[in-house]
Design a binder for these strands. Sequence first.
RNA 1: GGCGGCGUGGCCGAAUGGUUAGGCAGAGGCCUGCAAAGCCUUGCAAAGCGGUUCGAUUCCGCUCGCCGCCUCCA
Length: 453
Amino acid sequence: MPRLFDTQSSEIVDIVPSTEGKFSMYVCGPTVYDEPHLGHGRFTLVYDILRRYLKYRGVEVRFVSNITDVDDKIITRAAELGISAGELAKRYEEVWWDLMERLGVEKPDETPHATDWIAQMLELVTEMVSTGVAYETTDGVYLEVAKVDGYGLLARQNLADLRSGARVEVDEQKKSPLDFALWKRTPETEWGWESKFGFGRPGWHTECVAMALGILGEGFDLHGGGMDLAFPHHENERAQAVAMGKNFARHWMHNGFVMVGDEKMAKSLGNFTTLKDLLDSTDPRAYRLLVARSHYRAPLEVTAEILQDAARSLERIDAFARRFADVVLERPEVAPSKEVIDGFNEAMDEDLNSPVGLAHVFEAITRANFALDRALNEEAVSNAKAALLLLGTLGIVVQDRLEVPQEVIALAEQRKVARSEKDFAAADKYRDEILQLGYVVEDSDLGFRFRKA
RNA sequence: GGCGGCGUGGCCGAAUGGUUAGGCAGAGGCCUGCAAAGCCUUGCAAAGCGGUUCGAUUCCGCUCGCCGCCUCCA
């Protein structure tokens, strides 16, 4: 198992799963009310890479990520559009999965919906009220955070300091501004559910507790999300579990933000680029490469120039993959370079250091090319196999074959003949014609190869 | 106000108390009919000021600049 930075202890720790060889992870998914942006793309890629890496290391991963389909923002947005909240949520959930597929993010093993867990949430609320850690007011049920041991653990602040900085609106009925809603009473004209606490809907923080514990059980291995979820969302999830005397996540993992200049990309700041725009304009793999080549906890700046940089780096990877596509198949007996794989694993094992992992991949690519130039085939193939294996582990799908129209192949054949007859004027003419059709022809020992112009 | 973090070469981005990160771009060369791809060589660095040390980009302090969380937020 890798070591990972744990938000609770604020240090890199050994990850010890509750069951050896297995790993259960829960990552907070989207509230489906609008277009996802680059930040959503980053966190899904980060956890996708973690999941793929663990599987590659032979760990049996169970990955749960929820869909928040009941929320104030959904209700507000739906009202603006004049459609039902359920309809809006359904629409944006479809958008979400479509984008995930384009990003190459593997679908979670389970994708629970908050609206399917209302009954379980109400059970938890009932339990918290009965044990006295939660109380009712005229507008809902609140958890009294002062009664929770270690409240502030994930925020790394004590209760008093959190309270002094609280910016939440004052509610006379709440015992503390930090107390948060478990159940919100609403008029029956609004979207909601009947309950012993009155008609209403659940507070945000309860759904993940119900779903994580309900699906993965107590003491599941890892809970993750963006850094902005550490407080108050995850803090409040943990608070509920602690209040009920239940074991919650063993480890907490939080990824850094996507930055725009010196600011966090956020809906509220209006400085976001939608994932759709990114995917429509750039090779989706470029964003994955960008995410993988910076550390997951560091801020990540994304600009057109930086994406272009990653895209060019990807061209090098694809050129390498094309060069080795056949070579690798011819040598099934050669194993991937252990040295490269060990270097990669070592980097990834220390808090998922994918930038260093990628450096090993690029070094392997250089060595493979170097060796093949000198006909050192075994050396070339073992490095190439390692690089290809590890790229796959990061979820980077190489384009090692190109579907080329028959017409282009015919021109390349003619060019080959012209070259053998030393008719270079004709050869160059054929090359131009191939270029007109959108392909670049490259010569090699094995004949010709193509790439997209 | 409280808490956490950051400032690395033209750009992106790691590790590290003394030796090449890696990628992208640049320069020179090899290969090629010419290219492309590839390979080789090569600039360019550590916000500032002090301190610890034989030696600091790396540790400590201060200054400056910046960011995040404490409200919804990935």
